[in-house]
Simulated assay, not measured.
Amino acid sequence: MKLVVVTAGLTQPSSTRLLADRLASAVSRRADVRTQVVELRELAVDIAGAFVTGFPNAKLRAAIETVTEADGLVAVTPIFSGSYSGLFKSFFDVLDNTALTGKPVLIAATGGTARHSLALEHALRPLFAYLRAVVVPTAVYAASEDWGGAADSFTDGLGERIERAADELAALLTHTRRPEEERLVPFEEQLAALRRTDGISGA
């Protein structure tokens, strides 16, 4: 299976990319996936060009195909002014609005303060619901103080939230995957089977 990680971190190194990598690693421990990363920072000019011209160039088109052909997504954005970044939103705006239909998605975000954590629920989750994706129940937010933090008596730590979200995405990936042994039976074979059955019952 193909897991695609879309990360909208603007700096290098980036806490957004770090969270994305931790989520992808946790999913890969639970499901047999090939992971590919789409760094939106590297596509910023191409995305802007697509808005101006109405057409994605070859580089952006390849990224779009990578995302639409994925079996599942991990989508991570920094939070600015209480919502996802403009770069993050712009990338998903250039996708066809049916491109993610039925696709399992784990949403996550980073920010300087825990006060922005609800952006996952009032901004990211509705965005992917509009795109008809299947968003896992646990959204993962990492504030500055979460890095290296452990759970307390009231809340799970970042590590626990990552593991729970990875469990949910892996379960969806496994559930939606077509079994390898399942195949489409040609009509001729189905007809031959019916004839054999009729022959036996006629005897």
Rank of each mutant, 00 (worst) to 15 (best):
L100C: 11
S153C: 10
A151K: 12
L43E: 04
F128C: 00
T101R: 14
R30V: 08
V185E: 03
R183L: 07
A143D: 01
A119F: 00
R41G: 06
D198V: 15
N57I: 00
V37H: 14
R29H: 13
A192L: 15
H116I: 03
L118V: 14
R41V: 12
A70L: 02
A165D: 07
R41N: 13
S14Y: 09
K103P: 11
V135L: 09
P186Y: 13
S201T: 15
F80H: 12
S14G: 08
L87M: 05
V33D: 04
A171G: 09
E189N: 07
A193L: 02
K103V: 11
T53G: 00
T77K: 01
F88R: 03
L60N: 05
A99F: 03
H175K: 15
E145S: 15
P179S: 01
Y84F: 14
G148F: 09
T155I: 07
R29L: 12
Q36Y: 13
L106W: 01
E69Q: 12
V5L: 06
G49N: 07
H116L: 01
T110D: 06
G72I: 00
D198A: 15
E42R: 14
R125V: 04
F51V: 11
V33S: 04
V134H: 08
S15M: 08
E65D: 13
S90C: 00
T77H: 03
G148P: 11
V74P: 08
F80W: 15
A109L: 04
A170F: 06
G72H: 07
A150L: 07
A99L: 05
P104S: 07
R178C: 06
T98G: 10
F91V: 01
A171Y: 02
G111Y: 00
R115M: 03
T7E: 10
V140E: 00
L23E: 04
S90Q: 09
F55E: 13
H116Y: 01
L3I: 05
S144C: 07
E163V: 03
D71I: 06
Q36M: 08
P104Q: 03
V52L: 11
D152W: 01
L106I: 05
G72C: 00
V6A: 01
A119T: 06
F92Q: 02
G202L: 11
F154M: 08
A114F: 01
A50D: 05
I162W: 10
V135D: 15
L40M: 04
T77Y: 03
A165T: 04
A24F: 09
A75K: 10
T7I: 03
G112M: 04
K59S: 10
R161Y: 02
R125L: 09
V27R: 01
R17N: 09
A75P: 06
F154P: 00
